[in-house]
Design a binder for these strands. Sequence first.
DNA 1: CTTGACCTTCCACCGCAGGGGAGGCTTTAC
DNA 2: GTAAAGCCTCCCCTGCGGTGGAAGGTCAAG
Lengths: 143, 143
Amino acid sequence: MRIGELATNAGLTAKTIRFYETAGVLPEPERQPSGYRDYNGSALARLRFVKAAQAAGLTLAEIRQVIAVRDLSGPPCRHVADLLDTHAADLDRRIAELAALRDDVQRLRDRAKSLDPSRCDDTAVCHVIPADDPAAHPPARIP
Amino acid sequence: MRIGELATNAGLTAKTIRFYETAGVLPEPERQPSGYRDYNGSALARLRFVKAAQAAGLTLAEIRQVIAVRDLSGPPCRHVADLLDTHAADLDRRIAELAALRDDVQRLRDRAKSLDPSRCDDTAVCHVIPADDPAAHPPARIP
DNA sequence: CTTGACCTTCCACCGCAGGGGAGGCTTTAC
DNA sequence: GTAAAGCCTCCCCTGCGGTGGAAGGTCAAG
């Protein structure tokens, strides 16, 4: 199977597959005499795993690590379970942060309705966003 | 006021302030004969606005736009209110996405407890993450 | 006069997951 | 035989919000 066919089967582009190879989540395949990559069925299984793991929120670095753990010490199930635990906890944290940010934004928005634009302070950019906001959390990065 | 003092007062680094200048959220200040930047109090007010707006989830590009709107057509309150509306809606969407992802991850995690690692399929990387996951959403980008 | 703190510009880099395109082979179809 | 796909490697680009460092100018104290 050449790279284009594999890409079509996996629902990816050839570019992405080469990128996965350099990213270490897909092993280097055999080469045909022409130099073309020559894949077998296990590459497709691997790509399906990568997609499923990505859908579960794992980064390529984590996926690479899972694969390495498996290659070194057998089934990485416990490792994967730990990763999933960590991700669930991260997601909980991020959801809570975003919910708090949403509430702040909503509060500002509601306050804006009760403000008179003509009374906008000349020294500030816009009084809808109070520069001395006491509730100003450190910029809520949304990574 | 030189850049270091302004940075200390604003709780930023001098690097960041220069970056804000190139990003267009802070106007170019006067220069001392030495070439050093020479700030007045309005720079500090501006930086406070930028921090507050960032805390409200606005990007530097949006902040720059708010400032431009203000400079062109006066108080940008309505524009800012619209931005806040959009951001609140975006946050709602993203919170829902993350919650769905969190549930998926939790489901996988729970399922992992009931699996026997010794039965890990040799063809897959790890059966905790099913490669034929039917619930696999398109990779839930977390932008 | 020299040391050290502060400032200047410019260029490069981080993570993350790829995308774009150049320049050059090989394979396939007509 | 020739044109069109398809593939190869290589390097640069994206967005976002900065951070790091090099090479050099400036200012105050000792």
